[in-house]
Amino acid sequence: MTHGDPHVWHASPRLVARYADGSLAEPDAWSLEKHLEDCPGCAALVSRAVRGTAAGAVLDEVRGAVLAAAPAGAARSVAPPAPALPRIARLLWAAGPAVRGAWLPAVLLVAVAAMALGYGGGVPGARALLLAIAPVVPVAGVALSYGPHADPLYEVAAASPAGGLRLALTRTAAVLAVSLPPLTLTGLLLPASGAPAAAAWLLPGLALTLGTLALASFVGCRAASGVTAGGWLCAVGAPVPGAPGGEVTTRLAEQLSRCFDGAAAQGAWAAAAVLSAALLTARRQAYDRPLYR
């Protein structure tokens, strides 16, 4: 591979030659093929190299036979459309294990449990309980979506042009897209009972998620998720142990109001999100190597 900008690479003649003769290792071949989707120059280089091999001659014969048998006018078609199935498979791979696996059912289970407590169990502070848990749900999704413990193809993905921080952000966006709508809608359907607004957790949740990604560049995804999620739950639940039995959810709602309500609180969360994003940008190269911790 030839390098200029550390984030852009192009195929070297040696790499292309090894790909053409079939001696290139599978992870490197997969990485090169992914690169060819967005680099016409390298695609033309590989095409010329493959045409010079025995396989290229066979492909030319097959192409000629197909064009000869095609109906009039069909030969003028530039290229057939890409099959839909590989695109869907690629999208599911990019979305990550948490989204294409049991993540959505788990989020829906949290929402259904909150509704059951609020209406079936007669718990007046069900919204407070949901809002206390909601900000750490995307954090857990990040831990389950990125890293060797979550993805059997992690090493291959981390070595590809589509890997690194780009892949981590893609999977984080997928987790947020799946988690935010059902949890926020559930909060709207539950009685307020002194708890903050149903959407008050969105900015804190984003800040905790970005903070997790930034911290993961130092300690890995699982440890970072444990620190941010554990820190949040300890902070929001600190007043609860000393509350009388019937006032647990009331104390929780009061603590959540201190954390969520008002321009000062939301401004602090916005500042935390911006600072986390800035740190993540500064540490983006840490994602270019596998995060094994």
Results as ranks from 00 to 15, higher is better:
residue 39 C to F: 00
residue 39 C to K: 04
residue 39 C to R: 12
residue 39 C to W: 06
residue 39 C to A: 13
residue 39 C to N: 15
residue 40 P to Y: 06
residue 41 G to K: 11
residue 41 G to D: 14
residue 42 C to M: 03
residue 42 C to G: 03
residue 42 C to Q: 02
residue 42 C to H: 03
residue 42 C to R: 06
residue 43 A to K: 09
residue 43 A to V: 01
residue 43 A to S: 09
residue 44 A to S: 13
residue 44 A to I: 08
residue 44 A to V: 12
residue 44 A to H: 11
residue 44 A to Y: 07
residue 45 L to K: 08
residue 45 L to N: 10
residue 45 L to W: 03
residue 47 S to W: 07
residue 47 S to E: 12
residue 48 R to S: 07
residue 48 R to P: 00
residue 48 R to T: 02
residue 49 A to T: 03
residue 49 A to W: 01
residue 50 V to S: 06
residue 50 V to L: 15
residue 50 V to E: 14
residue 51 R to A: 15
residue 51 R to S: 15
residue 51 R to Y: 10
residue 52 G to N: 04
residue 52 G to R: 07
residue 53 T to K: 04
residue 53 T to H: 03
residue 53 T to E: 09
residue 54 A to T: 14
residue 55 A to Y: 05
residue 56 G to K: 02
residue 56 G to Q: 02
residue 57 A to R: 15
residue 58 V to S: 13
residue 59 L to W: 08
residue 61 E to Y: 07
residue 61 E to G: 15
residue 61 E to L: 12
residue 62 V to P: 00
residue 63 R to D: 13
residue 63 R to I: 03
residue 63 R to Y: 00
residue 64 G to Y: 01
residue 64 G to I: 00
residue 66 V to W: 04
residue 66 V to E: 08
residue 66 V to D: 07
residue 66 V to L: 14
residue 67 L to Y: 04
residue 67 L to D: 12
residue 68 A to F: 00
residue 68 A to W: 08
residue 68 A to N: 02
residue 69 A to T: 05
residue 69 A to Y: 07
residue 69 A to R: 13
residue 70 A to D: 00
residue 70 A to N: 07
residue 71 P to E: 03
residue 71 P to H: 03
residue 71 P to S: 05
residue 71 P to K: 01
residue 71 P to G: 06
residue 72 A to F: 03
residue 72 A to E: 13
residue 72 A to W: 06
residue 72 A to T: 09
residue 72 A to V: 07
residue 73 G to Y: 09
residue 73 G to K: 00
residue 74 A to P: 01
residue 74 A to G: 09
residue 75 A to G: 12
residue 75 A to I: 05
residue 76 R to G: 14
residue 77 S to N: 15
residue 77 S to P: 09
residue 78 V to D: 12
residue 79 A to N: 03
residue 79 A to V: 07
residue 79 A to I: 05
residue 80 P to G: 13
residue 80 P to W: 03
residue 80 P to Y: 00
residue 82 A to S: 14
residue 83 P to M: 06
residue 83 P to N: 04
residue 85 L to F: 09
residue 85 L to M: 10
residue 86 P to H: 01
residue 86 P to Q: 06
residue 86 P to D: 00
residue 86 P to S: 00
residue 87 R to C: 06
residue 87 R to F: 05
residue 87 R to S: 14
residue 87 R to T: 13
residue 88 I to K: 10
residue 88 I to F: 09
residue 88 I to A: 15
residue 89 A to Y: 02
residue 89 A to D: 11
residue 89 A to H: 06
residue 90 R to L: 10
residue 90 R to K: 10
residue 90 R to F: 08
residue 90 R to D: 15
